[in-house]
Design a protein around this nucleic acid. Structure first.
Lengths: 178, 178
DNA sequence: GGTGTCATGTAAACAGTTACATGATTTT
DNA sequence: AAAATCATGTAACTGTTTACATGACACC
């Protein structure tokens, strides 16, 4: 599971509880495990078994006990190994392309409405991204280089959406233009 | 299941067997259900039950019998309804961004190697896409407008990869430049 | 004689999401 | 008094991928 490496990465910056990991992963936009993410509890047990993390149980009075997870030396080298492993190409699920592919039954007005809705949706996503970046939920910032790298990651996401916007405009031009 | 609509769409162009559907879905790049895709057999049963498709069984001597699926009027209107339904934003899984996010353990050379590998991978994907387009595995081409739409879909995929290339170059510049 | 294609499917594994359970505390 | 937060987790479901099974035929 690749979420394992997302967990190891976050733990490489600071030791935290599963609950906090869950919130961070939900907030960081490029960690696409979006909705209520309960796989992390299973992953943490797995990482413990493999000796890549350890945990310290804090019993609190009048509140459930916390488990604070910390990455081990083996965890760090496992993470480093994965980071350097062969990168996969991006996998994009663009449902809209499939909808567009079968748009032949629609008249011009209906097709135009489709494109408008998509454009609006993309604009909304760009706003959401900017908002997420503004709130800065989590960023390691251990070194100036890392700071730059994280900036570039956020830029990647925004630029993907902006590229999509340009494309919609081109489609409209190509089909309805001149 | 969204693969249902991919199936309905293909059947809206021509009546074919499940086997052929499988091959077409595998070949069309924006139908991302990639590997050996056996869900379609289950989907076809489902679509039959819902009356969105019918099938005609051809018994062949000395060869397994074929089931040729045809879309019904209800299937066509179901498809039209879905096409016009609210579009989802693209969902991109970019593992590389997660790898990059935890690259702080690497030295400059190792980081540069990572970026080079990713750039190479993206270039490879662009080649594969162009090759797929060249072979033209399936395109409906029922109307000039549909032809244009399909061209734009292919352009979307290529342009996403090209945007990714530009981004890698920018990252390299931002981190190692000047 | 082994591999590949045609054509259907089943079974199992894995990944990811949603819903639910617990139980105390804090906020509205 | 109701809702949200803290903190852990389980169970069930959906979606996707991989592997396997069948059986005839064609190709090398």
């Amino acid at each position: 599971m690749t979420i394992d490496y997302a967990i190891l990465g976050i733990l490489s910056c600071r030791s935290i509880t599963g609950y906090d990991l869950k919130k961070i992963i939900q907030e960081i936009p490029f960690m696409y495990w979006s909705g209520n993410n309960n796989q992390i509890y299973k992953s943490l047990v797995d990482l413990l078994d493999r000796g890549l993390v350890t945990n310290e149980i804090l019993h609190q009075e009048s509140s459930p006990s916390k488990k604070i997870y910390t990455i081990t030396a083996e965890g760090l080298s496992e993470l480093k190994g994965w980071v350097q492993s062969a990168p996969e190409p991006p996998e994009c699920k663009k449902m809209f392309l499939i909808q567009l592919a079968w748009s032949d039954q629609l008249n011009e007005e209906e097709l135009n409405t489709m494109l408008n809705k998509y454009e609006e949706e993309i604009r909304m996503q760009i706003l959401i991204q900017h908002e997420k970046n503004r709130r800065q939920p989590f960023s390691p910032d251990r070194t100036p280089r890392e700071e730059k790298v994280w900036d570039m990651i956020y830029e990647n996401i925004i630029s993907s959406y902006e590229n999509e916007l340009l494309w919609v405009q081109k489609v409209r031009n190509e089909i309805f233009g001149n």
